[in-house]
Write a protein that binds this DNA or RNA. Structure first.
Lengths: 194, 194
DNA sequence: TTGACACGAGAATGATCGTTCTCGTATCGT
DNA sequence: ACGATACGAGAACGATCATTCTCGTGTCAA
């Protein structure tokens, strides 16, 4: 174990990623300075830079970590609503509804980050695109469960609608866009053979 | 007229707004420094600050100007497609398709700006929300033309879908999400009485 | 106990940025 | 032609930031 470290390397990494998540999500990448991460995580500059040699690499680690946690949360939330009797595809809107209504909601971290062009490298953009690809893939899996003969475009269209709702709920600080989107999808799904 | 000004106040304002639009849209607010605006517009720091007393006020002027120009463009593009025989609501997707395919496309300036939390004030957020409200309002007008008995939620849902497509086409650098969204809307509209 | 070492705290560095200021010049009314 | 003035060019200022460095301390092996 490290001689004079106050906490283990694992604990330090966890603390940094948690601080990074809270700060970057709330204030945007450009709105967070490295000393904020130090102050919020309790990990010294020296260890911070030993772990992540630049802010850019910390951002990449944050995006990767957030992808994992968000997908895990989303999957579980959807299954919870499905267990309550919802159609799997409509359940995605119920899950997003929980998120949008939660305190501190500020839209999709990946969409937000992509807008901060000056802070991003191509490897960040790859992580972001992969995140959305995974979402489409997950939606395709859900569609396959109850709507066996759904058109090819359905998962991609649902991903578009979900992202649009996430964005508009942020802009209007309201869940109304999500409700309208859910109504549209319900009506659309009625036309699709099960 | 101003004694020693190289160009008129109107020309200077136009040059600044055009430079601001190109720079802020391409690089984000945080990615543009005031001297970039000076270099790109040819308007000196002194006049720049005489016109807009802070970067924040320049950003507000840019957003307001962009709203006007974007809505004008969008309205005209939709009407052009309607004149070609398209359903007014589907024509919105054709119009967005032109935009997405244009060089330099980088998504919606308002959505992008909203993500740059640390650069924004409440008055910027108001301009952004008003822009999206105007879009919904415009869509409601289009819906009223051919779909007289459309459900209340239709314009809001279409706005969600359009914004989602704008965002996802940016993320994937592709027009495929827009095509999927258009397919979904076409199918949805078939279920709505004219 | 002692020397080598890894660490934390936080100062230092060098760059960048928003904003203001200086200075030399060109213009206007007279 | 002359003083007052408004301007452009760009230096200056003060703040902030990413990143690195210093220094004093605690820890380990022997």
């Amino acid at each position: 174990m490290s001689p004079a470290a106050n906490i283990s390397a694992d604990d330090a990494r966890r603390a940094v990623l948690q601080a990074a998540d809270e700060l970057f999500y709330a204030h945007g990448i450009g709105g967070v300075v490295m000393s904020d991460v130090r102050d919020s995580s309790g990990v010294s500059m020296r260890r911070l830079y030993a772990m992540y040699p630049s802010k850019s690499e910390l951002v990449a680690a944050w995006l990767t970590d957030r992808h994992d946690r968000w997908m895990t949360w989303f999957t579980a939330a959807v299954e919870r609503h499905v267990a309550g009797g919802a159609d799997p595809l409509l359940a995605t809107f119920d899950a997003i509804g929980e998120w949008v209504a939660a305190p501190g909601y500020r839209g999709c971290a990946f969409i937000n980050s992509l807008a901060e062009t000056s802070e991003l490298t191509d490897s960040h953009r790859t992580i972001i695109a992969d995140h959305k690809r995974d979402l489409v893939h997950h939606l395709a899996g859900l569609a396959a469960r109850d709507h066996h003969d759904a058109p090819e475009w359905l998962p991609a269209a649902l991903a578009v609608i979900i992202d649009g709702a996430i964005v508009q709920c942020t802009i209007f600080a309201s869940t109304e866009p999500l409700a309208a989107a859910r109504s549209a999808v319900r009506q659309l799904l009625e036309t699709i053979p099960a």
